[in-house]
Design a protein around this nucleic acid. Structure first.
Length: 290
DNA sequence: ATGAATGTTAGCTA
DNA sequence: ATAGCTAACATTCA
């Protein structure tokens, strides 16, 4: 990890975020850059931008950030000119607000100069993250946004909506819960946590779930997201929020990264397997395929 | 030291 | 429409 203790070097993003981590980034950005005018834009990695890079720079330059919103794991940076920057951090994207030139390194792919002397720096070691400019009024027409299923803690996250969306699949439930078009916001950490909580084996076929299972998944997802947001996200590898503090949710994780340690519920060793290509943690005794 | 692993998504193919 | 696999990329770990 780099040194994060630069004075004047505020970190707003963490790597590898799920919804609670993105929410934490959103709050940090609102606290620090809301109302700021973007006086200059530099895109150092052209593939960061989906669409025309020159147009992105042209339209963003001179605009003012009115608010930062979020839909699932997408940040929506609203500008006062009718456009919104749709920003996805993917695996390792992060924002840093700093006036210190040392905050910029070889992994800084977009640099937004603000009228308060700070720079909003987008950093992304693996270069998976993407940004895209879109008409604020037509965000629902954006392909990435349009296909998102209901997200936990939102109005549409109900049994009636979720049941048919989940049950039409016969893939592993873990894979289905990670599919953002079925329901959105959950990622690899929290899906493992949710399935442990409701005692469902990650390789259970989605169409074999009972109504009670679905209801339990909904409740556990809401609880998990709420707790994770309240904790400022999970710091599994590294994490510092907008005010320089770590998240706390990693201390509450029961199975993610806990392979070889006893299940907090029954004492059986947590196992790690691969499901749908993703590392998957579960208790072989609590979570059995029916 | 090679291969596998890493909080993700989009885009192909069948 | 659904399922499964691959790519995008850099770094760390076994």
């Amino acid at each position: 990890m780099e040194k994060w203790h630069h004075k004047n070097n505020q970190i707003v993003g963490d790597n590898m975020p799920e919804m609670p981590e993105v929410e934490t980034v959103r709050r940090g950005l609102n606290a620090q850059v809301k109302g700021c005018k973007i006086t200059h834009v530099e895109i150092r990695y052209q593939n960061l931008i989906t669409g025309d890079v020159e147009q992105f720079v042209e339209f963003v330059t001179g605009s003012t950030i009115t608010n930062v919103d979020r839909r699932a794991k997408f940040l929506l940076i609203h500008l006062d000119n009718g456009y919104t920057i749709i920003s996805h951090l993917r695996m390792e994207g992060r924002y840093r607000i700093s006036a210190d030139p040392a905050a910029i390194d070889k992994h800084s792919h977009a640099i937004f100069t603000l009228d308060n002397g700070q720079k909003m720096i987008y950093n992304d070691v693996r270069k998976f993250g993407r940004m895209q400019l879109w008409n604020t009024d037509d965000l629902d027409d954006n392909r990435s946004i349009a296909k998102l299923g209901p997200e936990p803690l939102s109005k549409g996250f109900t049994f009636d909506k979720l049941k048919p969306r989940i049950m039409r699949h016969r893939k592993d439930i873990k894979t289905v819960l990670l599919d953002q078009s079925v329901l959105s916001g959950l990622g690899n950490i929290y899906v493992d946590e949710v399935l442990w909580k409701v005692k469902i084996h990650p390789e259970t076929s989605a169409n074999h779930l009972s109504d009670k299972d679905i209801q339990n998944i909904i409740e556990a997802s809401n609880q998990e997201m709420k707790a994770a947001i309240a904790s400022g996200g999970s710091t599994v590898r590294s994490y510092i929020d907008a005010t320089g503090h770590k998240g706390n949710m990693q201390n509450s994780l029961k199975v993610y990264g806990k392979e070889g340690t006893p299940c907090p519920r029954c004492g059986t060793e947590i196992e790690k397997i691969k499901v749908g290509g993703r590392g998957t943690h579960f208790c072989p005794k609590c979570q059995v395929i029916k």
